[in-house]
Design a protein around this nucleic acid. Structure first.
Lengths: 287, 287
DNA sequence: CGGTATTTTGAACTATCTCAACTGGGGTGG
DNA sequence: CCACCCCAGTTGAGATAGTTCAAAATACCG
């Protein structure tokens, strides 16, 4: 609806600088398709806290995050909400293959989105096969992120989850540039949202942060600004032994296959949840 | 490698009775493609507890469950395992789009699988576009199941999770056939696996079952056989108010869009985890 | 049948939640 | 400009769901 009247023009201004061309789906399709997308999409903004798509509503459109943070929320019958996942710039809002939204998408900060109707999307998909590939990638990514969200919660206590989350928020770049520089993390989410994402109460979240501070892993400069004073300590407190995982997480790209957790020690003797103890050494009873 | 030498023969015996033709991916492709699949695939069996695909290993093949139960397991560094999901007949083992397996797949019972190398699979995909569609469906399904697994754990205490899981295991058919017949559920999983799936300790799992029995929702006929004496009570104890959800879960089909939880009451005032309280009524302090 | 593995029960312990009170910044209006 | 309120964040203390450890009961299996 903007000022685009031509068909198959070169990519319009709106898109040329867009994140979706770099890391998002638009970067994976050819020029013609990209300009098709451009002509069928439009931008809009949402204030922090606003509902973007509602659970149970028919899936009539999908969007790409241009800026800000979108949270995926599950509403339960009794009216409370569980934040399941966060979406960053370049990621997709809505589930294009479902008939009805399974979850609610809400703006976690002020958000700018690029919209497309589902009908347009499907037409496009039928027209241009190059989009298929981008699509599969899209899906792979969503699946992986969900898997990651699960991995975040399973087998870690509150402190570990907090540490782990901070660990994932660390800027990925600087093993060389700022080796001993202490990186800072700005927490965009409210305590409530973050607590919900990490599946703990707000109070416990505070205490976890405090403890990380007390133990010297971080330094709280302001409620929403954390300085990571000891990367290694943070990683250890996150029960994260594999240095490489954090890098993986920051790649929001289509490429990141399914590497992720690696290791390999498969002790076939125990499948359990708690994982408080390092390894279950059967107590040498008789001896 | 079996005794198939012809190309494009009609579907071989091995496939004609296969579950994958009904509910699985093979049912969604045309005859030619199906026979291609048949010629490129082969069966094998795994004993209960055996590893089918290993976390971290390159994704060289994928499979379809013919019979038995396969569990998706996440291994953590410290050596313990978390069961994330179960796969039934007709569902897909392995992640065809990832370079490396993110998780481990293990036989939860004795299992029969239909294998195909990833290379074969990709060739096939390139050859026959009808497969694409089935594939997207496949992915959608996997995504949804993961979402469901999350929904299972979030916002429910141990008893509710136990009840909810049993609820999902109820046979879907009988609103008419066996209205007041008390359905029985055979628990194929070991206590340990089930506990891990539901993210609780084995002991807590036992106690939850006991409590469901004591309160009259179920009747434990044997450790692995549960009789559901009161469907409604079970549903209520599962904090599941929507009657239809259970049906959805049993549809292992490609069709099941993204219906699932519905309701709609969005109280924008609270985003939290615990959900013990029904609705957060702000205490009328002054009045 | 005896031995081993699984499931179940019991009782102490603890991580996390809940409730309640306190803090501090930011706006508003007098 | 100050007094006030309001809200998000923080801290404290008691309550509790769920874990852990240990032991008994039951099922499984050659």
């Amino acid at each position: 609806m903007q000022s685009l009247k031509s068909v198959r023009v070169p990519i319009p201004d709106r898109c040329s600088a867009c994140v979706a061309r770099k890391s998002g789906p638009c970067g994976r399709v050819d020029i013609a398709a990209a300009s098709e997308i451009a002509s069928r999409s439009s931008h809009s903004t949402f204030e922090s806290g606003t509902e973007v798509l509602r659970q149970g509503a028919p899936t009539d459109k999908i969007g790409i995050v241009i800026s800000g943070l979108v949270k995926i929320v599950m509403l339960s019958e009794n009216g409370d909400e569980h934040v399941l996942q966060l979406l960053h710039a370049g990621e997709v809002v809505g589930d294009p293959f479902a008939e009805e939204n399974v979850f609610t998408w809400q703006a976690a900060t002020d958000v700018e989105l690029c919209w497309m109707t589902r009908a347009s999307f499907e037409t496009l998909l039928a027209q241009d096969p190059s989009i298929y590939r981008g699509y599969l990638g899209l899906f792979t990514q969503q699946l992986q992120e969900q898997q990651f969200a699960v991995a975040l919660l399973r087998g870690r206590n509150t402190l570990e989850r907090m540490a782990f989350w901070l660990w994932t928020q660390l800027p990925t770049d600087a093993p060389d540039g700022g080796k001993d520089a202490t990186p800072q993390i700005r927490i965009l989410l409210s305590r409530r949202d973050l607590a919900s994402l990490l599946d703990m109460s707000v109070e416990t979240l505070c205490r976890a942060l405090r403890q990380l501070d007390d133990r010297g892993a971080i330094n709280m400069l302001a409620p929403d600004l954390v300085e990571v004073t000891d990367r290694t300590k943070l990683r250890l407190m996150a029960k994260e032994h594999d240095e490489s995982v954090q890098d993986l997480l920051s790649e929001t790209s289509w490429e990141w296959g399914a590497r992720m957790l690696d290791s390999g020690a498969t002790d076939p003797s125990k499948t359990r949840r708690p994982a408080r103890r390092l390894v279950a050494v059967p107590p040498p009873k008789g001896a």
